[in-house]
Design a protein around this nucleic acid. Structure first.
Lengths: 257, 257
DNA sequence: CCGATCGAACTGGTATACCATATACTTTCG
DNA sequence: CGAAAGTATATGGTATACCAGTTCGATCGG
């Protein structure tokens, strides 16, 4: 390195501390990871986030924390009530059904695009991935199937070749994962889900965009209908207070680079 | 009011200054309005936003401005480069095609839902709205058709009854409007667009979800293909500098109440 | 006259102090 | 003893000071 970039005098080689990364981004990532990790719908009581405590815990000032909170709030993971606190949001049944509906829209489009443009190798890889779960016993695997399930859907999105689709589904998946963990244990949804997946794979292999789209949509909407029927427990009011003061808007979508 | 809520002594009736609204929200709204208003793709040079200048102009400190910027950045309207400045983002052709693709996915789902659940009155209202443009001469109306076009698509979204669909398309529409203003003047896209719209309305009236969905999708994807073919001018590099320093992620989607 | 170098001004990132209000606790009066 | 009123504390919102890196122009050397 000295040869390529000669220096007049020996200097302390510092490992190029990363510019570009800011406390805000790190705080955002940390908080989102934390929220994703905990199963939102398992905890009984409301979860409150304290700016000052967090800033103290992360070792930064409140400013980056606040900016991270702003992001999380817009993404719908958190809700801040002035002079009250910041609370982790729990979606209602209806909101979850809507999320799954949107997921159906985006995923079916992704399946269509994948059937048209995806590489054969990627489709083969997807089949191989899912085959692992068919061979093993489906008893104990069910636990980890929740993750494989997400992986399958994310693969479809990725194979669409549309980065924006990936971006817009990213946060939906976080909620999706929490929901799946619950619904997957009900009835024989895991088995049915696997069967659906293989039919979708077949449609991709057959390069049948219309069929792939339809199967993906029906698969997702099936889940939506299931939640609609059996998801009433989602609406149980964990919080005693339900005073109004609804934030006017608050539903935005990001479209960025 | 005195009767319902008796007061011991006459007090100064103050017009209930609005709590709930914060400088951040107002700054966010103002900035977004400004960005929406100006046609992003008309300006030749890069547009830079200065926190201090804005805070001075709006009469608030930098803090709310920064928080608003954080939101706008996540939504993909601006990009902040540390120690350089904040710039209004101009989408590339590819990104726009992807946006239209996502739009196609969401809108086709909306059309399906609308065909299933929308009120007859709303569908009739939609037809009436569009009929106004068929009767008049299509020459001068073309200018204002751009807005009516957006209105049509937003109506479809609304009629789906899915609030999340509305939320996720909200920002897409802002870019969409800018694009439409350009493409609408090319070929006879306005005429074709109107024809498509009427076919969609017919599908809604016929309560044919599959057909409504397909028509909506093809309508949008047709625009995508058009941009793909004739939208090369979108990629002309307005800015001389194209140094890297890519923000890692940056594509998020909001899902909130 | 031209180029390299140095520095002043500018810009976003961060820390911190202060404010207004919601909430909980304490006090006081009936 | 209980309820209402007053007070202390906590919390998010806002303003501001300071920091580090970038930009660009002035100045010095050739």
């Amino acid at each position: 390195m000295f040869d390529a970039n000669p220096r007049p005098s020996p200097t302390l080689e510092v490992p190029r501390l990363d510019t570009g990364s800011t406390f805000r981004k790190e705080a955002y990532a940390a908080l989102k990871r934390a929220i994703t990790a905990m199963d939102i719908y398992d905890h009984a009581q409301e979860i409150r986030l304290d700016e000052r405590r967090l800033s103290e815990g992360l070792g930064v000032s409140r400013t980056p924390i606040r900016e991270a909170m702003t992001l999380l709030e817009q993404e719908g993971f958190v809700r801040t009530r002035p002079r009250r606190g910041i609370f982790v949001v729990r979606k209602t049944k209806r909101e979850i059904v809507e999320m799954i509906t949107v997921m159906a829209a985006l995923e079916s489009m992704a399946a269509r695009l994948a059937a048209e443009h995806a590489a054969d190798a990627d489709i083969a890889e997807l089949r191989r991935l899912m085959a692992e779960f068919q061979t093993g016993n489906d008893g104990e695997r069910r636990a980890e199937y929740s993750d494989a399930n997400i992986a399958f859907h994310q693969a479809i999105i990725r194979m669409s070749g549309c980065a924006l689709l990936a971006g817009m589904t990213e946060n939906l998946f976080i909620h999706m994962r929490a929901i799946r963990k619950i619904t997957i244990h009900q009835e024989n949804r895991a088995a049915r889900s696997i069967a659906d997946h293989f039919r979708i794979i077949e449609a991709l292999e057959g390069r049948d965009p219309g069929r792939a789209e339809r199967l993906a949509r029906e698969h997702a909407l099936g889940l939506a209908a299931h939640v609609e029927q059996h998801g009433d427990f989602l609406d149980i009011t964990h919080n005693s207070l339900k005073n109004g003061s609804r934030s006017d808007a608050g539903m935005e979508s990001g479209v960025s680079k």
